[in-house]
Amino acid sequence: MTRESLFNIVMMSLLILFPLWAWIADEPFMITLATKAVILALAGVGLNIALGLGGLVSLGHAAFFGIGGYAMGILASHAQSYSPILESPFLIEGTKSMPVIWLVAIISSGLAALAIGVLSLRTTGVYFIMITLAFGQMLFFFSISWPAYGGEDGLPIYVRNGFPGLNTLDPIQFYGICFAILAVVLFFCARLAKSPFGLALNAARQTAERVETVGISPYRLRLAAFTISGMITGLAGALFADLNRFVSPTMFSWQTSGEIMVFVILGGVARLFGPVVGAALFILLEHLLGGLSDYWHIYLGLLLLLIVLFARGGVIGTFAGKGANHD
């Protein structure tokens, strides 16, 4: 067993034990903090497929996070007001069912990622970063200018959506749902990274030309990865909106894209648990330092600087050493 595997097991255990402790100690706020960390980790895990495996520095992943959030917001707001989303040419009604909302969030963010990817993946480097950023900002301003769904003020949802057989208003049960989704997605990502698709994607990150000579189109490979990445981040957006029972244009903002990228870099780019560690550390710092100063991001910036300069494998790379094929 590698040190990284051991580190991952410890991290997974903490994700189980910490909320259990908070539940036993009757600390619902702590459970909510853990839920937020898990959801943000999921968003980072999505980005990690594009950034870590594919080497695609997307500064527009907030677009998918926001689409997932608004998928939840729009469906739930229509369900709570008993008004259909669309009456003609066919009836589309809102829903309060989490699985249906997740499905819509995954499909809509996946389609958006496919469309954005088709255009942006024709470029590389700084142009790719700028195009993804531009798409994210376009959706940000679109959401601001959409008064039907709250415009700049955002859209509140009064009751958390439901999941069959569970009370989602109970923090530990909602945490359980989010944790289970993260676990499933992590398992999927672990398999994906070792599949022929994941290996070819990793190879294309090193050199596209060599991948072409073995009969693989790097463009299609990256497009598929970008789409999967967007779908996972979109699912995280839907869960995040459900956690807060609120969606706002902030979910689309470039700061959100930057934060998702920070999770990945803090934990370790292309490390399976990198975004999990990064998001947990982010929430921890926000909780500990945010109480001391409104400007706690200064310390986050300092930490990020240290990691980028001295620990390029992120926190996991520092503890587990190199050896992952992605540093």
């Binding site: 022929p196 290996l199 070819a200 990793n202 190879a203 073995v214 009969g215 094929n325 992605h326």
Partner: peptide, 11 residues
Amino acid sequence: SLSVAENLIAA
């Protein structure tokens, strides 16, 4: 960055 086996599987 891929192992020998992974180089073969990727292609």
